[in-house]
Design a protein around this nucleic acid. Structure first.
Lengths: 338, 338
DNA sequence: TTGAAAGCGCTACCAA
DNA sequence: TTGGTAGCGCTTTCAA
């Protein structure tokens, strides 16, 4: 309630009041073992009394280490995913006493330039560059000078470390589960955008069929835009082919939502007549559909963790980071739809 | 691609290379008008050549202004809302050359303490304390020493500035719109949690009825938990009363989603037999339901902007911030459901 | 119009 | 075991 007029106490204030030198106070704070317990306690008492907290700005200037990691995203963080990614990154950073400084560039060149200027000016020790869906990016040239880890994205020549979901594995696993449940006619409603996930999930789907000795039937794969409408049309189309599928694997949960509508309209029950599998595990969809939708989860939290861990682990050894291209599995989230 | 071995250039480096003093360089950077164009250009040329950027850490130490605002949330940022709030705040902060430092406390006392220590150590100039839904909070005592603005929340004695959605106005407006469309029997499926929105939206609903001379019929208000299931049961109940409503106002979009299921199962068409109005405008629900759901939007972006603007506007005048309790209207988002 | 120099709060080297 | 002190990069006063 008071007017916070009083200036913050400095290390010098602590030293004077404790009757020791600034050096001693610094040693106490930084856990130098040479300080005898008696002195240490005296100093700590004064610190508590004055409610002293070291000035991180001065520390940074002196040590030439800011303790800041720049977290750059090129898009507005509107998806629930963004939070998960950031949370994973933050949890790891926090553990190592680093802080994350968020910069949205909103795909705006001017903003991007000023964001990066800001980060460099603030002496960030490294950069995590994250996108909201798995894709290739072109990195702003200035960033090439800093240790950078890519999150949910990659650069054309794979010369920077990167972590992305294992799309092929996810597609494989999803299809495998449906086959294990006894389905031999598994439809796939694929996205039509030229993004990595499109081809990779399809590859996983095909590989799973092959591994189970089921011939690939192109008629069972339809493509449309990755919306609810697209899923609706896709499911309609699949249900019209002569020997119709008994299970549908959808590119994502939004498409699955549309597929639900189409199946319901055709009087088909889920999962009795047709099993449905989604992707992305967008919980607000998958958890609230009726019946709840089984899905493959995108490992956002884990990617956030991995990227940060890798960056921090390798920050010490200066120079360029080894361009590991890490993939993280997409766990299966079972629900009532299969 | 290079190994970024070279240390960053300092202001001194610039001064030497340009053949002027450090002071002159500082003046040029800070736009001191006393510097003649000739000198200025010479200096700017060297700055560009060296790719020099002022060290914000040193600036902060010297000026005693960190340019950092702490953005504290007590919950994990999983909702799509979180992004909107933060974006609004960030847009304003950025304009004024301030940066936002995010700290999630996750309702964990230990984390909260260390987060706040971190923020104070980093010399934040002020705090924005945000929650993910409108409610009362108890502020960590340390924060009382810093200029703080509450976002989507408030403290018991209203002694801190705060910005929240105008729940009463939203409830009023939603009901008003349904009445204007000719509905005189408007059902309300309310939430049952003891949160501010529950009572306030109901108050708005009642006020709108009163203003249109429609007597309040308690039978038209049902309460349940704020989930899809709750909405399902609520709609079922409302459809069973003798003179059933022709419009339903739902506490939120999730409940409306359940109401859709119930109405569909009863063979009632939306909006022909029953109009449905949601709240929150959770786009992934309201935009994808069929028919798309009309809703009242929670002004997250605007709250983020207001809180930051208010904080920055009043940072200068030291002391405690005037405890303005600001409300922001919830705009009506028209879609096909009414 | 420009420069010299003090000093922001801290760390860490060197002495004692 | 503790203290004196230089200096991190910058802003800003005062003087020239």
């Amino acid at each position: 309630m008071n007017q916070q007029k009083k200036p913050k106490p400095t290390m010098n204030d602590v030293a004077k009041m404790a009757g020791v030198s600034q050096t001693t106070v610094s040693f106490v704070i930084n856990g130098n073992p040479e300080i005898p317990d008696e002195t240490k306690e005296k100093v700590l008492a004064v610190i508590a009394q004055l409610d002293y907290r070291p000035n991180a700005v001065a520390q940074s200037l002196r040590t030439q280490r800011s303790g800041i990691i720049g977290f750059v995203t090129d898009e507005i963080a509107i998806t629930p995913f963004a939070g998960k990614i950031f949370e994973g990154a933050q949890d790891v950073a926090w553990d190592q006493e680093k802080i994350l400084l968020l910069a949205n560039t909103k795909n705006d060149a001017r903003l991007q330039a000023s964001a990066i200027n800001m980060l460099i000016g603030r002496q960030v020790e490294g950069i995590i560059y994250a996108t909201m869906y798995h894709r290739q990016v072109e990195l702003p040239p200035v960033l090439w000078g800093l240790p950078t880890v890519l999150l949910d994205c990659f650069v054309a020549d794979h010369s920077l470390p990167s972590v992305v979901p294992d799309e092929v594995g996810g597609g494989y696993h999803a299809t495998h589960i449906l086959i294990e449940k006894g389905h031999t006619r598994v439809g796939f409603i694929n996205n039509q955008d030229p993004i990595p996930a499109t081809g990779l999930r399809l590859a996983g789907y095909q590989a799973a069929l092959a591994d189970h000795g089921i011939p690939f039937d192109p008629a069972l794969v339809v493509t449309d835009n990755s919306s609810s409408d697209g899923g609706y049309r896709g499911a309609q189309a699949l249900m019209q082919i002569p020997e119709r599928p008994t299970a549908i694997f959808c590119f994502n949960d939004r498409m699955a939502m549309g597929a639900y509508d189409a199946l319901r309209k055709l009087g088909l029950s889920i999962p009795n007549d047709v099993a449905v599998m989604g992707f992305d595990n967008q919980e607000i969809i998958s958890g609230y559909l009726y019946p709840p939708l089984s899905s493959m989860e995108l490992p956002h939290y884990e990617m956030g963790k991995w990227a940060t861990q890798y960056l921090l682990d390798n920050l010490a050894q200066e120079g360029k980071l080894a361009p590991v291209q890490h993939k993280i599995a997409c766990p299966f989230i079972p629900r009532a739809s299969i």
